[in-house]
Design a protein around this nucleic acid. Structure first.
Lengths: 105, 105
DNA sequence: TTAGATGGTTAGGCATGACTTACGGTAAGT
DNA sequence: ACTTACCGTAAGTCATGCCTAACCATCTAA
């Protein structure tokens, strides 16, 4: 029951917030520059960035007045590891189901 | 902008619903049997299963009065593929950042 | 110092989500 | 046919989430 994945999953569940992260995954960007690419206001982007930051998916570095946000690989690594574990469970579960069908035949 | 991932991500974002899916990933189960493993009511589990079903993460097969829910590999495969793509983007973005630092040195 | 640019924070409204209780509907056993 | 078991759905409540508008703080440039 790895509960530390709730924040990252909830963060990527929102469409606009997921797009924000996708943009940051391509290249680091400032808040204003980021907000220009989306139809929502800048405070909304700022809140999304806070959610992504609390989820461990992005990091910030101050450059004068600009805050440059950057994607954090470790956050994604945890998600990938979790899904890989689930994937193995599902596959073995399917294998056992097939085995059951064999005995029925 | 793959928007078909919103439902699966939102489905796995909820803690109890994620635990439900984890249980189904281990082995198929009926609704009542599943509800006994959680502190919430059976209708709540039923609603969670509907969300997971709409997200393409589980499938149902009727056995008399019992509805057996089973994890669906294809749904997980899409999520894994999406995260793998993001992972590649983040890595190349990091590589370019290091390259920039090289030129500064 | 003054003016402009950049961005985090708050308050409020509107929608969505998770849960419980109560009900209806279907299949199996007597 | 009657009862029991199993499950989905509807209505209602309480909490949370996303958004905008407005305000405030900080850094830079003239």
């Amino acid at each position: 029951m790895p509960n530390h994945l709730t924040k990252p999953l909830a963060a990527l569940a929102d469409p606009t917030r997921r797009q924000v992260f996708e943009a940051l995954a391509t290249a680091p960007m400032a808040v204003g520059t980021l907000a220009q690419h989306f139809p929502v206001s800048r405070p909304a982007i700022s809140q999304h960035l806070k959610v992504l930051s609390d989820a461990g998916l992005v990091t910030v570095t101050k450059q004068g007045t600009r805050n440059i946000y950057c994607a954090e690989p470790d956050g994604l690594a945890d998600l990938r590891a979790y899904l890989d574990g689930l994937w193995q469970d599902v596959l073995t579960s399917f294998g056992e189901a097939v085995e059951q069908d064999m005995k029925h035949a």
